[in-house]
Deep mutational scan, measured.
Amino acid sequence: MPSETPQAEVGPTGCPHRSGPHSAKGSLEKGSPEDKEAKEPLWIRPDAPSRCTWQLGRPASESPHHHTAPAKSPKILPDILKKIGDTPMVRINKIGKKFGLKCELLAKCEFFNAGGSVKDRISLRMIEDAERDGTLKPGDTIIEPTSGNTGIGLALAAAVRGYRCIIVMPEKMSSEKVDVLRALGAEIVRTPTNARFDSPESHVGVAWRLKNEIPNSHILDQYRNASNPLAHYDTTADEILQQCDGKLDMLVASVGTGGTITGIARKLKEKCPGCRIIGVDPEGSILAEPEELNQTEQTTYEVEGIGYDFIPTVLDRTVVDKWFKSNDEEAFTFARMLIAQEGLLCGGSAGSTVAVAVKAAQELQEGQRCVVILPDSVRNYMTKFLSDRWMLQKGFLKEEDLTEKKPWWWHLRVQELGLSAPLTVLPTITCGHTIEILREKGFDQAPVVDEAGVILGMVTLGNMLSSLLAGKVQPSDQVGKVIYKQFKQIRLTDTLGRLSHILEMDHFALVV
Rank of each mutant, 00 (worst) to 15 (best):
P2G: 14
P2K: 07
S3D: 04
S3I: 04
E4Y: 11
E4S: 14
E4M: 03
T5Y: 14
P6V: 04
Q7L: 05
Q7D: 10
A8H: 11
E9T: 10
V10G: 11
V10W: 11
P12C: 04
T13I: 10
G14T: 12
C15V: 08
R18K: 15
S19K: 13
S19E: 06
S19P: 15
G20S: 07
P21N: 15
P21H: 10
P21W: 12
S23N: 04
S23L: 03
K25R: 10
K25S: 09
K25V: 07
G26V: 14
G26E: 10
S27A: 13
S27Y: 08
L28N: 10
L28P: 09
L28R: 06
E29R: 12
G31W: 15
G31K: 11
S32G: 06
D35W: 04
D35P: 10
D35A: 15
K36S: 03
E37C: 08
E37R: 09
K39L: 15
E40M: 06
P41C: 12
P41L: 13
W43C: 12
I44C: 08
R45A: 10
P46D: 04
P46G: 00
D47Y: 01
D47W: 01
D47Q: 07
D47V: 05
A48M: 10
P49T: 10
S50P: 09
S50R: 05
R51K: 12
R51W: 04
C52L: 00
C52H: 04
W54M: 07
W54L: 06
W54A: 06
Q55E: 12
L56K: 13
L56C: 11
G57L: 04
R58V: 06
R58F: 05
P59Y: 05
P59W: 09
A60S: 11
S61V: 06
E62H: 05
S63K: 06
S63I: 07
S63F: 08
P64F: 12
P64A: 09
P64G: 05
P64C: 01
H66A: 06
H66T: 10
H67N: 07
T68I: 15
T68W: 09
A69N: 10
A69H: 08
P70A: 10
A71M: 11
K72L: 13
K72F: 08
K72A: 06
S73R: 12
S73C: 13
S73L: 12
S73G: 13
P74L: 15
K75G: 14
K75R: 06
K75E: 06
I76C: 09
P78Q: 09
D79N: 11
D79E: 11
I80A: 04
L81I: 09
L81M: 10
K82W: 10
K82A: 09
I84L: 14
I84Y: 11
G85K: 06
G85D: 06
D86N: 13
T87G: 05
P88C: 13
M89G: 05
V90D: 01
V90L: 05
R91L: 05
I92F: 12
I92K: 04
I92E: 00
I92N: 01
I95R: 03
I95S: 02
K97E: 14
K98E: 13
G100K: 08
L101H: 00
L101V: 06
L101S: 01
C103T: 02
C103V: 04
L105D: 00
A107M: 02
K108Y: 07
C109S: 08
C109Y: 06
E110Q: 06
F111D: 01
G116F: 13
S117W: 03
V118L: 06
K119E: 06
K119I: 02
K119W: 01
D120A: 12
R121I: 01
R121T: 01
I122F: 02
S123C: 04
S123D: 05
R125A: 12
R125L: 05
M126N: 02
I127S: 07
I127C: 04
E128P: 08
E128Q: 11
E131L: 05
E131H: 02
E131S: 14
R132Y: 03
D133G: 07
G134S: 07
G134T: 08
T135R: 11
L136F: 08
L136H: 00
K137H: 09
K137F: 10
K137R: 12
K137I: 10
P138C: 14
G139S: 10
D140K: 08
T141A: 15
I142S: 03
I143N: 00
I143P: 00
I143F: 06
E144N: 02
P145A: 06
T146P: 05
T146Q: 02
S147I: 00
S147A: 05
G148K: 06
G148R: 02
T150D: 04
T150A: 03
T150N: 02
T150S: 03
T150C: 01
I152V: 08
I152N: 01
G153D: 01
G153C: 02
A155H: 01
A155M: 07
A155E: 02
A155I: 01
A155G: 08
L156V: 07
A157K: 06
A158M: 02
A159L: 04
A159Q: 08
A159C: 05
A159K: 02
R161E: 06
G162N: 00
G162S: 06
G162H: 07
Y163L: 03
R164P: 08
C165D: 01
I166G: 03
I166T: 12
I166A: 04
I167M: 10
V168D: 01
M169D: 01
M169A: 06
P170F: 03
P170K: 01
K172E: 07
K172Q: 06
K172I: 02
M173G: 03
M173P: 02
S175V: 11
E176P: 00
K177Q: 03
K177R: 02
K177W: 00
D179T: 08
L181N: 01
L181V: 06
L181C: 00
R182Y: 09
R182F: 07
R182W: 06
A183F: 02
L184F: 05
G185T: 00
G185D: 01
A186C: 01
A186M: 00
A186F: 00
E187N: 10
I188L: 08
I188Q: 00
I188R: 00
R190Y: 06
R190E: 02
R190H: 06
T191M: 02
T191W: 01
T191V: 03
P192R: 09
T193I: 09
N194G: 05
N194Q: 11
N194M: 09
R196L: 10
F197Y: 07
F197S: 06
E201R: 15
S202C: 02
S202L: 02
H203F: 05
V204C: 10
V204T: 12
V204A: 11
G205A: 03
G205S: 13
G205N: 10
G205V: 07
G205M: 03
G205W: 15
V206F: 09
A207C: 05
A207G: 04
A207K: 03
W208H: 09
W208V: 08
W208D: 11
W208N: 09
R209G: 09
R209Y: 09
R209Q: 15
L210F: 07
L210C: 08
L210Y: 03
L210V: 07
L210M: 08
L210T: 07
K211P: 08
K211Q: 11
N212L: 14
I214C: 04
N216E: 09
S217K: 05
H218A: 03
H218F: 12
H218P: 04
I219C: 03
I219T: 04
I219S: 08
L220Y: 03
L220Q: 02
D221L: 02
Q222F: 02
Q222W: 00
Q222T: 02
R224D: 03
S227L: 03
N228T: 01
A231Y: 05
A231E: 04
A231Q: 07
Y233A: 00
D234Q: 05
D234L: 09
T235H: 04
A237I: 00
D238Q: 03
D238G: 10
D238H: 10
E239Q: 05
E239V: 00
E239S: 01
I240L: 03
L241W: 11
Q243G: 02
Q243V: 08
Q243T: 14
Q243W: 04
C244Y: 01
D245F: 07
D245A: 02
G246F: 01
K247W: 08
K247E: 08
L248N: 02
L248D: 04
L248G: 03
L248M: 13
D249C: 04
D249A: 12
D249H: 07
D249Y: 04
M250F: 05
M250H: 01
L251D: 02
L251R: 01
V252M: 13
V255K: 03
V255C: 12
G256K: 01
T257D: 00
T257E: 02
G258I: 00
G259C: 00
T260L: 02
T260G: 06
I261V: 14
I261W: 01
I261E: 01
T262N: 07
G263F: 00
G263S: 01
I264E: 02
A265G: 13
R266E: 08
K267E: 06
K267A: 15
L268D: 01
K269I: 03
K269A: 11
C272R: 12
C272K: 05
P273S: 11
P273G: 09
P273N: 06
G274E: 11
C275G: 06
C275K: 01
R276K: 11
